[in-house]
């Protein structure tokens, strides 16, 4: 499972290109965590704009990274949510704790 990311100063943006189900997410978590621990960014953005399908495994992915990073002061943000993906995040209440943006550009912090 490939995961693309982009480093922009203190921002680390992950672009998902596959279905976010349990099978794919299991492989992705490890790769994402490696990139995060190598780069130690302040601001982590997950871009869902290219995701065609997501189930509750996607919620686990975001929530898990949020919990891991809370202690080290890293911020987790999400963007590019289609209608169905937004609905799943809303149901889980995740949007109450994770800031949500339309595009990655809006989520980037310049400092």
């Amino acid at each position: 499972m490939e995961v693309n990311f982009l480093r922009n100063r203190n921002n680390l943006i992950f672009y998902f290109d596959c279905d976010l189900d349990h099978h794919n997410v299991s492989g992705l978590k490890e790769k994402i965590d490696k990139v995060i621990s190598k780069n130690r960014p302040k601001n982590i953005i997950f871009d869902f704009s290219r995701v065609n399908f997501m189930d509750s495994s996607g919620v686990g992915l975001v929530l898990g990274r949020y919990k891991n990073l809370k202690s080290s002061g890293g911020d987790v943000k999400i963007c590019g949510l289609s209608g169905e993906i937004k609905r799943i995040f809303m149901l889980s209440g995740l949007q109450k704790i994770i800031p949500t943006y339309t595009t990655a550009d809006e989520a980037i912090v310049n400092e």
Binding site: D55, G60, L63, L91, S92, G93
Partner: peptide, 22 residues
């Protein structure tokens, strides 16, 4: 029940049945 999971260690969110019902 929403958010109930027996596998929090696996980073499950306990949302599966809630999503099915929605």
């Amino acid at each position: 029940t929403p958010l109930f999971t027996s596998k929090p260690d696996m980073e499950r969110s306990g949302m599966g049945f809630t999503v099915m019902e929605a």
